[in-house]
């Protein structure tokens, strides 16, 4: 099992007392699986990622990766935060090579690799530009590139395409699928788009409003490679329907 979350719990202090954000979440993710998390805004999705990435220690529960306990330990995942968090003092390429630099790897090689990947993200003309000169969508693509460059076998993507226009969004989605078919990675993916979740995932997990619990999950059995035509297929629409109903259940 690539990743196991076991009875995860997290709360924060709030003016009205303790606010429970994660409430006994159990989730298992297989090697190479693409799992999307959907749930209402503020339910605790980003918090879940904070726990898995080791940035926060859960109040209760365990996180295991490849069988070993990584609860509260950093450096095991490629994490793309919801905000792009590009460093204003680094050019696009320098931002992309951040993880390599943290790991003390050869800077020059990392930059060359980043430069090779730039065209995929439509950033080839902006290698030496500072983030202040990029548009919102370009910033998000640069952040995605940085995540890819971080090179861990488990990716946590927190709404990586939230700020993209529809066209770029589709392009990056297809690119992501293509990359994953070549270099299998395990992906946990937060999105607010049911379409996107179904199109990309092997499994979609629906979370409850805060505190987050697993409300239900659905395996997406559409064959791979995925194509845009599948989006109008019966199976796709049924999956969407099911997820939509689950999300809006007892409201």
């Amino acid at each position: 099992m690539k990743l196991e979350m076991e009875a995860l719990e997290q709360s924060y202090a709030s003016p009205t007392g303790e606010r429970r954000v994660i409430d006994r979440v159990d989730l298992k993710v297989e090697e190479g699986e693409f799992v999307s998390l959907i749930g209402p805004s503020g339910c605790g999705k980003s918090t879940l990622f904070n726990l898995v990435s080791g940035l926060e220690r859960p109040l209760g529960g365990r996180i295991r990766k490849d069988g070993s306990d990584i609860t509260g330990a950093t450096g095991h995942v490629s994490y793309m935060p919801q905000k792009d968090c590009l460093f204003p003092w680094r050019t696009v390429v320098e931002n992309a090579s951040l993880a390599a630099e943290v790991a003390g790897k050869d800077k020059k090689k990392a930059r060359e690799r980043a430069e090779r990947l730039l065209p995929v993200f439509g950033l080839e003309d902006f290698a030496g530009e500072y983030p202040a000169r990029l548009s919102g969508g370009m910033r998000q693509r640069a952040a995605l590139l940085r995540t890819v460059m971080a090179d861990r076998d488990l990716w946590l993507l927190d709404e990586p395409m939230g700020a993209l226009d529809a066209l770029t969004r589709e392009r990056i989605q297809d690119w992501l699928l293509q990359i994953l078919s070549r270099f299998p990675r395990t992906v946990l993916f937060i999105t607010h788009s049911v379409d996107e979740a179904v199109y990309l995932s092997d499994r979609v997990v629906v979370l409850t409003p805060r505190p987050a619990r697993v409300k239900g999950e659905l395996s997406i059995t559409l064959p791979r490679p995925r194509t845009r035509e599948q989006m109008t297929s019966e199976a796709f629409l049924q999956a969407k329907q099911w997820l939509w109903e689950k999300l809006h259940e007892d409201k």
Partner: peptide
Amino acid sequence: DPDMVRLLRSMGAKEWQVFRMVRFP
């Protein structure tokens, strides 16, 4: 920006790296 610090930490950065790469610039 605490979020930048967190991002760097998630990559396994040490405190001095956070200082050099985020706080100082």
